[in-house]
Structures are given as structure tokens and as C-alpha cells.
């Protein structure tokens, strides 16, 4: 188990390293670092001074080394726009995004699993067919368009829910959260649903496929032959078997949700790091872009690690193998 953990950690560190190289090359080789790092108003002499100060006259590997050691110390440059450390800006915006993404994950499980169970248990019912048809829409509709429609229907036409912003927040562990106030929750409803839509479809399909696959199995029949209640057969015997792949996939999708929050946050003006990155790209505030990219890769790697761990906890078969 420990060697397995160690191997995964080394793998994760390696992926991080590769990403620093890619981002470094992207900023310094593909893009023009002078343009990126020095404000456009600077004159010729200022430029030369800045180039020297930033070490841009040094060989590439030395520049990379500076970038890497800076990154390791949490220094990824200062934002031109806000004149604050880029990493700090990202960190300030992160809770809003995480809150949104986690709510979306919860929604996709809370909505997706029951719908999938229904569609799996009654594949030929009208309800089951509608659910499956709807899931195709959930997959292929562009997120931003669905977001617009949600706003149009629920905010503009019906006026039930607010369309933009985060609403009032409350502090917990020194961080501001929307989910702690009723109005904050109302603000979160539409964006979270919008972000969750694709994942609802995914979870629903996985659940349905799992049910269809597991129901004909002998263990289900044997469970029924023991006289236990149908609810227990479905919710304990079948669901526990299906849950393993679902947890794995949903876990791996959290990273995707955080990335996709970029779109949802833009539509709903949700002040998370996705909104920040779009604004930063639009004004070419590259230190913030770099910080965002590094941060999100880190999130990815950590999430994958946790999902792997969770998987081994859930599936007794894998658990045994890793022990030996």
C-alpha cells in the first residue's frame, strides 16, 4: 500500500513538472515574454532594464530554473491589473469556484443516480425513455447556451431566481461561502445546475448501464431468493456494485467541472477563478494566467490521487490486491 502510494505521488509530481515545462515554453517560447511581463507603456531603456532584471537575457534553462524555484516558493509573478501576487488573486477566487463545482457534483449525483436507477429498472417505460432522450441533450447542448436559457426562463420570464453574482456570503474557516445563506443558495442554484448538466447526464447513463448490467446477475437473483426486500436488493446489493465506477468517474470529472466553471462563471457573472482567468486572458494579464494554469493542474493531480485512494477503499477486490 505504501509503495503504491509512493509510486502515485512520484507520478503526480512528474505530471506537475511536465506541466511547468509546458507552461514555461508556452509563455516564454511561443509567446513573447517581454510583451507578457513588461507593461506595454515602457520605453526602450526601461525595457532593457526589465529584460535584465527578469533575467530574460539568460539561457533558457536558467530562466526555467528561476521560474520553477519561484513556483515552488509560491511566487508566480504579480498581476499587472491588480498589482497583487497572482497566486493570491487565484486563491481569493478559488472558494467560489470550488463551492460551485462541489455543488454541481452533489447535484449530478443527487439527480443523476435516482433518474438512472429509474431508467435502468424500467427501461421500456415512457419515463425511462424520456430520461434517456434527455440525457443525450444534456451531453450535447453547449453549456453556455443552456445557461442563457436558464437565465431567460427562471430569471427573466419567471423571475424566480437571481441570474448573476454570488449573493451574500458568510465566513467559515476564514473563507467566504455562499451556501451558508439562503440568498446565496438561491444565487448558486442556476449556475450549479448549469455546470452539473453534463455530469447529470453522465451519472445517469452510468447508473442505468450499471443497473442493466447487474440486474440479470445471479447475485441479484440469489439476494431475492433470500427473501430480502426489493428496496434492499436495489439500494444495497445493486447500488453498491454500481457505485464503484460512478464514484471513480464522478471524482475524475471534478477537475473537468472546475475547468468548465470558466463558462458557467462567465454566463452567470460568478466571481470565481474561471471568471478571473477569462478577464485576465482578455487583458493579457499573463502572470495570473500562468498562476491559474499551475493551480488547476495541481488541483487535477490532487483530485486524481484522492479518487484512486477512494476507489481502493470502495472496491474490496482492489483493496486486497494492493495489500498484497
Amino acid at each position: 500500500m505504501t509503495t503504491w502510494m509512493l509510486r502515485r505521488l512520484i507520478q503526480a509530481a512528474f505530471v506537475m513538472l511536465v506541466m511547468t515545462v509546458i507552461v514555461f515554453i508556452g509563455v516564454n517560447v511561443i509567446g513573447d515574454p517581454v510583451e507578457i511581463l513588461i507593461s506595454p507603456e515602457a520605453d526602450q531603456a526601461e525595457r532593457a532594464r526589465a529584460v535584465a532584471a527578469l533575467g530574460l537575457d539568460k539561457p533558457l534553462w536558467e530562466q526555467y530554473w528561476r521560474f520553477l524555484s519561484g513556483a515552488l516558493q509560491g511566487d508566480l509573478g504579480r498581476s499587472f491589473v491588480f498589482n497583487e501576487p497572482a497566486l493570491k488573486l487565484i486563491a481569493q477566487r478559488m472558494p467560489a469556484t470550488l463551492e460551485l463545482a462541489i455543488t454541481a457534483v452533489l447535484l449530478s449525483v443527487i439527480i443523476g443516480i435516482p433518474l438512472g436507477l429509474y431508467a435502468g429498472l424500467k427501461p421500456n417505460s415512457i419515463g425511462g425513455r424520456i430520461i434517456m432522450g434527455g440525457s443525450i441533450l444534456g451531453f450535447s447542448l453547449p453549456t453556455f447556451w443552456v445557461g442563457l436559457m436558464l437565465i431567460m426562463v427562471f430569471a427573466v420570464q419567471l423571475g424566480w431566481l437571481p441570474s448573476t453574482g454570488r449573493g451574500p456570503t458568510r465566513e467559515l474557516f476564514g473563507v467566504h461561502w455562499s451556501f451558508l445563506t439562503w440568498d446565496g443558495l438561491r444565487h448558486m442554484a442556476l449556475p450549479a445546475l448549469n455546470l452539473a448538466l453534463g455530469n447529470i447526464a453522465l451519472v445517469l447513463r452510468l447508473t442505468r448501464a450499471g443497473v442493466r448490467e447487474n440486474l440479470p446477475m445471479d447475485y441479484v437473483k440469489f439476494a431475492r431468493a433470500k427473501g430480502i426486500s426489493p428496496n434492499r436488493v436495489v439500494f444495497v446489493h445493486v447500488l453498491k456494485n454500481i457505485l464503484i465506477p460512478i464514484v471513480t468517474v464522478v471524482g475524475l470529472e471534478i477537475g473537468g467541472l472546475i475547468a468548465f466553471a470558466v463558462v458557467t462563471e462567465s454566463v452567470f457573472a460568478w466571481p470565481g477563478m474561471g471568471k478571473l482567468i477569462i478577464d485576465s486572458i482578455n487583458v493579457l494579464d499573463r502572470p495570473v494566467i500562468v498562476a491559474y494554469l499551475m493551480m488547476i493542474v495541481l488541483l487535477f493531480v490532487v483530485i486524481n490521487l484522492i479518487v484512486d485512494l477512494l476507489y481502493t477503499v470502495l472496491d474490496p477486490r482492489v483493496r486486497l490486491e494492493t495489500k498484497e
Partner: peptide
């Protein structure tokens, strides 16, 4: 079922829930 009438299945590898 399982109380007054019990059944033992043909394939022992498949009858118990793996998880």
C-alpha cells in the same frame, strides 16, 4: 423465500455479491 423455501444456485462464483 429464504425462510420456508430456500434455493442454492448452480454457479457458486456468481451467487454471492462481490462487494
Amino acid at each position: 423465500r429464504g425462510n420456508r423455501i430456500a434455493m442454492i444456485f448452480q454457479d457458486p462464483m456468481m451467487t454471492l455479491n462481490p462487494v
